[in-house]
Every structure is written in structure tokens, then in C-alpha cells.
Amino acid sequence: MPPHAVLPTGSAHAKAILVGEHAAVYGHPAIALPITPLRTVAEVHHCPGPLRLSTGDASLPVTELPQRFASVGVAAVESLTFFGLPAEDVEIVVRSGIPPQAGLGASAAAANAIVEAVRAYAGVALNDASRFALVQTAERVAHGNPSGIDAHATRAREPLLFADHVATPLTLGAPVCFVVADTGVRASTDDAVAGVRQIVDADPALGRSLLARLGDLTRAAVLDLEQAHLTAFGRRLTEAQDALTDLGVGHPAIDRLVTAALDAGAAGAKLTGAGRGGCVIAVTPDAASGQVVQSAMTAAGAVAGWIVTLGAT
């Protein structure tokens, strides 16, 4: 690749789970929302020697990456291999604006960005199934047994219903505003998933009941969004928070932000992602009320916040 060439680039964005996290691992549906203001960009640079990966902190050969970057290293190696390219004379530079371990799909966004950058470097097309498989290969390193939601949602442009391992666009009957706030508490997705598994194994009847409840709330939420029943939709979110707390993935910081959002007029609020920290998502009818809710969550301790407004589809 000559020095003056346009750099092959790929990008992806964050995601939030509206309802259905954890239950999706057990075969129940989930709804995912793209958080497009938060993005990860990957670029392919010419660099003599073995394949390197730069994450902003440092540039290292992929064989020397610390464990927390293992999944992005796998995304780079597997993508080059898929396109029949040697894993040498290349540096992949990754710049992410997505907080890690916040339930926003940072690892899947990085993998998606890398796959697209390598695809552009190879100069060939890539079908959706192959792209998904490459991202999932990296996600298995990051999360063990990922549902596939993040791989789809970090490239989607609209909310997705994820059911039976298939992602389909979700219809919105009216504009909706979502407010995402970061508790600042970082937690391991793997630990949260393992904690839920322990509850399910220790008390199967309780575990199955809570997971089924989340599945029922997800299916009802789909109809609420399609029929523009925002009050009912918000209530599903808050009820889902109760079920997730019973599954052991709550946290006092989450409770504070949920309470602040509801007190400020949000129709509903809950954690998003694995829980035990990370982010809270609240729903409001418009951006003006979203600003009020965001300010309330900031006053309650949120370290960052983002507003996503979607029109009717």
C-alpha cells in the first residue's frame, strides 16, 4: 500500500440493550438499540514486519497483546486470513470512543471496525453472514458464548429484534428518545453472566421464571414500540430492571440513576448490558424531556451521558 493511498478504514458504533439482556443467552428475544454517537474506527497502515495493532495506548505485535486486547487481535488475524492476506507488513490502528466494560458493545464494535477495514484493504466484497462469523470469532474470545446481538447491533442503523438467532429491524410507531447514562462502575460481562448462571443452577424454577419474565416483557415491548404506547413501553423497562436485580446483576449506582430518571419524568429506566455497573437507559417522548432526564442522572452520579432520538419507521 503506497504511503499516499487513502487508508482503508472501517467503523462501527455502540449499542444498548433495551430489554432482554441475559435472557437472550437462554433463547429468549431481546431488543437492541444502536448508539451511533459513540464510534470506533479502525485503519490499516503499512508497517514493515509482523502484524501490529495500535489501540492508542501502544502499538504492539498481535502476539504480544495483553489479554484485554486479545479479541481485537483475533479479529485482525482472522480477517486477514479470511481474505488470503499475510499477517505481516500491516498495522491496524483502532481508535474507540466507546467506554469499555460499560455494556455498550465496545468489543463487538472494535471487531466490526477491524473486519471492515481489512475488507477495504483487501478490496473485495463481504457478505453479511461471513462478516458476522468473523466478528463472532472475536467475540467468543471476549465473552465466551456471545448471543450475537452485539455483532449485529454495532453495525445496525435502526433498533433490532433479536430472536431465534435472527436480527430483524424493529418498527417504531412514533418518535422515541433514549437517554444512556454511564454509572462509571466497571464490571466483567463474563462474571455477570456466570452469576446469572449460578442463580439459574441453584434455583432452576426461580431462574427460569425470571428469564421467562424478561422474554415476555421483550415481546410486549415490541408491540408497545410498534403501536406507539410509550407509557406501557417504559413500564416494561422498569419491570425488566426488577427482574434483572433479582438475577443478581443490579448495583447501587444503577439504582441511583434509575430512580433519578424516573423522578425526572422518564417513562421507564433500567440497566443496559451485563449489569453490576455499566450504563442505564431511560426512555422519554422527546429530546427536551431527554435533556431533563440526562441532567438528573448526571446529578445522581453519572459520569457521562448520551441522547439518541429515533423517528417513526
Rank of each mutant, 00 (worst) to 15 (best):
S59L: 10
S59M: 11
V62Y: 02
T63D: 14
E64Y: 02
E64T: 09
E64Q: 15
P66S: 05
G73R: 01
A75T: 03
A76S: 15
E78Q: 14
S79C: 08
L80S: 04
F83A: 12
G84F: 09
P86E: 04
E91K: 12
E91Y: 04
E91L: 14
I92V: 15
V94K: 00
R95E: 13
R95C: 10
R95F: 11
S96K: 03
S96I: 12
S96M: 09
G97L: 09
I98T: 11
P99H: 01
P100S: 05
P100V: 07
A102I: 00
G103I: 03
G103V: 02
A109M: 06
A109E: 10
A109H: 04
A113Q: 08
I114S: 12
E116T: 15
R119P: 15
R119V: 14
R119M: 15
Y121Q: 11
A122I: 07
V124L: 15
V124M: 15
L126D: 13
L126H: 14
L134R: 08
Q136F: 11
T137L: 12
P146I: 09
S147M: 10
G148N: 07
G148D: 08
H152I: 04
H152R: 14
T154P: 06
A156M: 07
E158R: 12
P159Q: 06
L161Y: 06
F162D: 06
T168G: 09
L170C: 07
T171M: 14
G173C: 04
G173Q: 00
V180R: 02
V180G: 09
V180T: 08
A181K: 00
G184E: 01
G184F: 01
V185P: 06
R186W: 02
T189E: 00
T189S: 05
D190R: 11
A194P: 04
R197D: 13
R197Q: 14
